[in-house]
């Protein structure tokens, strides 16, 4: 029987993880009303840790992504004499893909790992059990606030990322490469659609990514073996699983929503 378990391949294991993760999501959702009723403060605090504290990296990366995007696109578009479209293409690619995806990947690395390690250590040092014994439901006090914080923080971070990206694109395109300022903006505003690009790209996509990353991070922390090796491994898994989930989900969302 042991041999059978060892022969369990990666597919079976992953499926088991996904199933357990789904059940865990249901538990979190069930605990959410309680969490909001009794531990809103905790959600606010987590929003500070996973959201506000991630602002710097998000802003810096957004700026650079916008800048390099403008540089690359200008080069390619100049071949076709279409440099006037630089602003448009920068905006569209940030809103639809790069903004939500890069923000989510950065978020998984910056906040997701922190969540996993924190919860994993809380379990390893019996803090979770201590809460249970103080009649504080750790699902409502620990899991749900972090999940909600991730869910709320990622779209906001993505908005900031995108705004900085546009700014960076403008900086390179207009200030440096000399595209006409009016051309840059008017082409952008003529093409970018609020619903199709900003709401369904920046907002919906990153909301979905936020849910996935936060769920994976909390789940991995919650189920990590209570050892230093277990926590370390769970942290790694958070990054790997989130990255795969983000990119796969991105494809699915793009295919079906847009």
């Amino acid at each position: 029987m042991n041999a059978r378990i060892e022969r369990d391949n990666i597919v079976t294991q992953s499926l088991g993880q996904i199933g357990a993760c789904g059940l865990f999501l249901l538990q979190i959702l069930a605990a959410t009303p309680r969490s909001l009723r009794r531990h809103v403060r905790e959600t606010v605090r987590q929003l500070w840790f996973v959201g506000a504290m991630s602002l710097t990296i998000i802003m810096v990366c957004g700026l650079f992504v916008g800048m390099v995007l403008a540089l690359q696109l200008y080069h390619v578009l100049s071949i076709f004499g279409g440099t006037a479209a630089t602003g448009t293409v920068v905006a569209i690619s940030i809103y639809r893909e790069l903004g939500p995806v890069i923000t989510a990947l950065l978020f998984a690395g910056r906040a997701g790992t922190a969540i996993t390690a924190e919860i994993g250590l809380m379990r390893a040092t019996d803090q979770i059990a201590a809460m249970e014994l103080m009649a504080v439901d750790p699902l409502a006090y620990v899991a749900a606030p972090r999940f909600l914080a991730g869910l709320i923080a990622l779209p906001l971070l993505c908005c900031v990322f995108s705004a900085l990206g546009i700014f960076g694109g403008h900086l390179v395109g207009v200030t440096w490469l000399g595209i006409d300022n009016g051309t840059f903006w008017s082409n952008m505003t003529a093409t970018v659609d609020v619903w199709q690009d900003i709401i369904s790209g920046v907002v919906w996509k990153s909301l979905a990514f936020g849910a996935v990353v936060a769920l994976i991070a909390v789940f991995q922390g919650y189920t990590a073996p209570p050892t230093s090796e277990g926590v370390a491994y769970a942290t790694t898994r958070t990054v790997v699983a989130s990255s795969i989930a983000i990119l796969a989900l991105d494809f699915v969302l793009t295919a079906f929503l847009m």
């Binding site: 803090q127 059990a129 201590a130 103080m134 504080v136």
Partner: peptide, 29 residues
């Protein structure tokens, strides 16, 4: 459980909070 106090073999203090908040935790909750 609200009526039971439990002292852990390994203390299990909440590392997020200072000593005061750790003791105050059950009251606040």
């Amino acid at each position: 459980r609200e009526k039971i106090g439990y002292l852990f073999q390994n203390s299990a203090l909440l590392t997020d909070f200072d000593v005061f908040e750790n003791v105050a935790f059950p009251l606040r909750q």
